[in-house]
């Protein structure tokens, strides 16, 4: 198992390096190099840039400086704000995004597994049809629409009751987290429900479920100890990629609900062309996603004996 984890992390580090290099190439080697120093208007920032990135040196040197800095956790300085370090921006805003993302991942997984199991168990009856209608809506409606609807709903709720049941925006306490994380988790929940339904049905049709029935096990026992466990496994494998979807979805939800997360900051940076912040956050988000995929893989390795035992050898 340990060697499996080590190998997985080795691949991860390589991937992160690839992301960092791709980002560097995109920002430096493309015509109209946005990092060309004369583009920075503010002389203080220009001086900072020059110092930080060695912009007057050849590209290979710049690359080495860039990678070395990054290894030290230094993502540079903001391009538009004096004396703002990208790493400070990240450490200030990322926890909010992580909270939002994890909460919505929790909702998405819980709902996905639950609804998926319900649809599969009530196949072709009304609960199945009803949930599947919501699922297909969930994957077809863009998340900013859900965000808007969610906000509108809060607004109406507060209007009807005349008090503030939930805050409309901001990030302060569980009340303010509820709607954004539900909205953010919705499409992932729909996707997981669909996946869970498919795997549940697939498992239900397998020979080993037939064997379990031939053994004389009760339906509940078959469901709990044979069907559910095998059906959840594919769901675990997609949790890593699901975090990617939730992260990018977070950009929109954070913007709509004015949540001070890194996603919203990223969107602002994009709109203000804060190149260094964009670069830093891209690499950071990339590294984060790679890490999450690895975590999901390792988790899967623990659940699936085929991988656990093979890796143990």
């Amino acid at each position: 198992m340990l060697s499996y984890i080590v190998k997985r992390f080795g691949m991860g580090v390589l991937t992160i390096w690839f992301i960092a290099t791709a980002t560097f190439v995109a920002m430096h080697l493309v015509p109209g190099n946005p990092l060309a120093q004369e583009k920075a208007v503010n002389p203080v920032i220009r001086a900072n840039l020059e110092k930080q990135y060695g912009l007057d040196k050849p590209v290979t040197t710049q690359y080495i400086i860039y990678i070395t800095n990054m290894l030290h956790g230094d993502f540079g300085i903001s391009y538009t704000q004096e004396n703002r370090f990208v790493k400070d921006i990240i450490s200030e805003h990322f926890p909010v995004s992580a909270e939002l993302g994890l909460l919505s991942l929790f909702f998405a997984t819980l709902g996905g597994v639950l609804f998926g199991a319900i649809t599969a168990l009530s196949r072709n009856r009304w609960p199945d049809h009803l949930i599947m209608v919501f699922v297909i809506l969930g994957v077809s409606v863009p998340n900013f629409v859900f965000a808007a609807l969610g906000q509108l709903l809060i607004l109406k709720l507060n209007g009807w009751t005349g008090t503030t049941i939930l805050p409309i925006a901001g990030w302060d306490g569980f009340g303010s987290m509820l709607m954004p994380s539900l909205v953010l988790g919705l499409s992932t929940m729909a996707y997981l429900t669909r996946l869970m339904r498919a795997t549940m049905l697939e498992v239900a049709g397998t020979d080993y479920i037939r064997t379990a029935r031939a053994k004389g096990l009760s339906t509940t026992r078959i469901f709990l100890s044979h069907q559910l466990r095998n059906a959840i496994m594919p769901v675990i494998t997609v949790l890593g990629p699901a975090i990617a979807i939730i992260t990018t979805g977070g950009f929109v939800v954070e913007s709509v609900f004015t949540i001070p997360g890194l996603g919203r900051y990223f969107v602002q940076a994009v709109q203000q062309l804060d190149y260094t912040v964009i670069m830093g956050t891209t690499v950071f988000f990339g590294a984060f996603l790679v890490l999450m995929v690895i975590v999901a893989d390792i988790l899967y390795g623990f659940v699936d004996p085929r991988i656990r035992v093979e890796a143990g050898r």
Binding site: T15, F18, I19, A22, T23, A26, M27, V30, P31, G32, P34, A244, T247, T248, F251, F266, V270, Q271, L273, Y275, I278, M279, T281, T282, F285, G286, L289, V290, V293
Partner: peptide, 24 residues
């Protein structure tokens, strides 16, 4: 392709545009 999958897709889309000098 393994590496390509690992790229944070939408972030790179944005990076791409910016690299091409197309601002908001």
């Amino acid at each position: 392709t393994d590496f390509l999958v690992a790229l944070p897709f939408l972030l790179f889309m944005i990076l791409f545009r910016i690299a091409f000098g197309i601002g908001p």
